[in-house]
Every structure is written in C-alpha cells, then in structure tokens.
Write a protein that binds this DNA or RNA. Structure first.
Lengths: 119, 119
DNA sequence: CCGCATCCGCGACGATACTG
DNA sequence: CAGTATCGTCGCGGATGCGG
C-alpha cells in the first residue's frame, strides 16, 4: 500500500457507505466526547477494569469525566458496568458485544495513528 | 510508564496496539470535535467539495463550526483547502493522503454503525 | 480507601446577523 | 459564496464533600 499511484482514477468513492448517513451520524454521536474513544481503547487491553485502574491508565482524565463518559457509553450499550456491593466498593467496567465489535475500527485507527506525523 | 505490565493471557478479542499510547491519543485528539469525523466522512463521498456543498451535505452543522473544524483539520494535515481568487469566491476542500488513509477506519466504522441499534 | 455527586470557572459549541 | 463577529448555552476540567 506504499504505492501512491492509488490516486489515479479516483473518481468514485473510496469508502462505501454500507449504511445510511443517519446511522453513521448516530454512531458518531455515541463515540464523540473528549474521552470515549480513549476509554474504549483502554478497555480493549484490559477487558475487565475497575474505575481506579482506568484512572491510572488514563492519567489525564478526571474522575468526574471518566464516570460521566462511562455512564454515557453504558447507556449506548457499548460498555458494561458491574457493581460489587462490598467494602471497599468495587465497580468493574467492560465491553459489550457491540463495544467489542469496534475492534477492527480501532485496529485501523491505531495503524493510522502510527502512520501520521503526530504534529 | 509506557512499560505497562504485560499481563497477557487475554482473549484474542483484544486490539493489537500497533503504536504507542501517546501516538494513539494524539491521533484521537485531531479527530475529536463535534463534526470532524462527519466532515471527513462527507469528503470521502465528495472528494472535492466547496463549503456550500458541505453545508448542504451536513445540514445540522453551522457555518462557523464547519469553517472552524475544516481549518483545524487542515492544520493537522488531514484536509486540503484551495482558494480560487475570483468572483464569486470559490474555496474547495479535499482530503490529503493522510486523510485518505483513514478510509479503512471509516469502512469498519460504517459497518459498525449499520450493526448497532442506533438509539 | 473507593466510587460518585455537586459547585464553580472556562472554553468549545450553537444561533443569528453582518461584511467583502 | 466564503468568512467574521457577537452572544448564549453546554461540555469539560478542578476542587470539595459524602457514603460505603
């Protein structure tokens, strides 16, 4: 894929929709937000993570935003939230099937990240 | 810090990093924002688009945000901006090689969008 | 100690009107 | 047609408090 002659004959769309524009924008809405993609990315490398673990894995995020975005992701059926009623409290987060279905997206996103200059 | 404990043994569903976490988060930063992904998505189906065309394609976005996000994407080397000095003014936007490299990401993202319930 | 909610301040974002 | 200016709203960061 290193050849640049791929641009020749670039008349049609290089990305096939595969879904309606409304579905696409709806999907983008549930992935937008300052930390959602980062959270999902971390949940891929640690499928069952406590809140404190996610905090340690993503030091830049505040606890408030972490909880807030996790709840939103839970509402959208992307992450699971399991509360263990005990002392000290223990809440574990994970990915649903829908969340794990994002794996190929992240794989290509990460290879793209490795490709770009970073700026 | 980057030497995170490699507690392997996870199921094969995990995503292979393929790049550093810093690169990943840097990449996510340049794709975050309310409309950037939608704009890129539209630029895939219309590789050379004027501002008014993008406005028509994305009715929900305001002109201010459209220009603002396009400038940010241009700064990050994802979209190109071509000004034609004439009357009436004509400015065309397109994808750079880096932007077009996002194609596989969008393909999987769109198939994921078609899969999820939408909500 | 861990998970979570609340109050405050700022910057991103939405809506409208205006300029070249 | 492309872009700017202005104002109001809301997402987000920071700090604090509270229950288990």
């Amino acid at each position: 894929m290193t050849s640049t002659d791929n641009k020749v004959g670039y008349s049609p769309k290089s990305v096939r929709p595969a879904c309606s524009a409304e579905q696409a924008e709806a999907a983008l809405r549930m992935l937008e937000g300052r930390w959602k993609l980062v959270i999902i990315f971390r949940l891929f490398e640690r499928p069952v993570a406590r809140l404190s673990e996610l905090q340690r894995a993503i030091p830049a995020v505040t606890q408030k935003m972490l909880i807030q975005q996790l709840r939103a992701l839970e509402q959208d059926g992307i992450v699971t939230r399991t509360v263990h009623a005990q002392v000290p409290p223990k809440v574990e987060y994970g990915l649903t099937d829908l969340g794990e279905a994002l794996a190929p997206v992240f794989e290509h996103l990460l290879s793209w990240a490795a490709r770009n200059p970073g700026r």
